[in-house]
Simulated scan of single mutants.
Amino acid sequence: MNLNETYWASRYREDETGWDLNRISPPLKEFIDQLEDKTIKILIPGAGNAYEAEYLFSKGFEQVHVLDIAREPLENLKLRVPSFPEENLHNVDFFKFHDTFDLILEQTFFCALPIEKRNLYAKKMTSLLKNNGKLVGLFFNMEFKKKGPPFGGNKEEYLTYFGTEFNIEILENCTNSIPPRQGNELFFIFKKN
């Protein structure tokens, strides 16, 4: 399976987006609600329909950047939020993207990548984060019966990718997941070393 732009674009066109909550993820909303500095530069990679970006923008965060390999979800965000800055919408392969950010939010992007790209993901995150920047989000804490995406995993595995590049501030069971994911998600805050 080639998880490229064509694959993901077709998932949006055919409305095969089972990961899409049609709203911001409750754990990320709770985290965002605690952010005070609205000048920070934020990236949401593999953002899909980017409800997190919409929420951040509505709260006055203006340096929110959204990245997706498929154009369709970026267009969906622009339809919902016409004033969202066009220059902050990046239709590009995550691994070919270059910039630096204070905060990167992870929401269902990591689990969409083939497992063999997880080390590359961790390394790419370090290059995209400024010194003391943070990677914050959710990982699945389960294995899936069918072949992915999504691809599952567990805390011990994730530590092998992120334990040397980041200070693991939090990596624990998520207490406010949506009901279908309750008990199957880990919330994390990783700070770049």
Rank of each mutant, 00 (worst) to 15 (best):
residue 2 N to G: 05
residue 9 A to N: 07
residue 12 Y to A: 08
residue 13 R to D: 10
residue 14 E to V: 00
residue 18 G to E: 11
residue 18 G to N: 13
residue 19 W to H: 12
residue 20 D to V: 07
residue 20 D to S: 11
residue 24 I to A: 07
residue 30 E to Q: 11
residue 30 E to H: 07
residue 33 D to A: 03
residue 35 L to Y: 04
residue 37 D to N: 15
residue 37 D to T: 08
residue 44 I to N: 03
residue 46 G to Q: 05
residue 47 A to Y: 00
residue 49 N to K: 12
residue 52 E to C: 04
residue 53 A to Y: 02
residue 55 Y to A: 07
residue 55 Y to V: 10
residue 65 H to W: 07
residue 65 H to K: 04
residue 67 L to V: 12
residue 68 D to S: 04
residue 69 I to D: 03
residue 71 R to A: 10
residue 72 E to W: 00
residue 72 E to D: 13
residue 72 E to Y: 03
residue 74 L to C: 01
residue 75 E to F: 01
residue 76 N to M: 07
residue 83 S to L: 01
residue 87 E to Q: 15
residue 88 N to H: 15
residue 89 L to E: 11
residue 95 F to D: 13
residue 96 K to L: 09
residue 98 H to S: 15
residue 99 D to E: 15
residue 99 D to R: 08
residue 100 T to E: 14
residue 100 T to F: 02
residue 101 F to E: 12
residue 104 I to A: 09
residue 104 I to N: 08
residue 106 E to S: 10
residue 108 T to M: 00
residue 109 F to M: 14
residue 109 F to N: 12
residue 110 F to E: 06
residue 110 F to R: 04
residue 110 F to I: 04
residue 115 I to D: 07
residue 119 N to C: 01
residue 119 N to L: 06
residue 123 K to P: 03
residue 123 K to S: 14
residue 123 K to I: 13
residue 134 K to F: 04
residue 136 V to G: 09
residue 138 L to A: 09
residue 140 F to M: 09
residue 144 F to G: 14
residue 154 N to Q: 09
residue 158 Y to P: 13
residue 160 T to D: 11
residue 166 F to H: 11
residue 167 N to R: 07
residue 168 I to W: 00
residue 169 E to K: 13
residue 171 L to C: 12
residue 176 N to L: 03
residue 179 P to L: 05
residue 179 P to Q: 03
residue 183 G to P: 01
residue 187 F to M: 11
residue 188 F to Y: 13
residue 188 F to M: 08
residue 191 K to G: 10
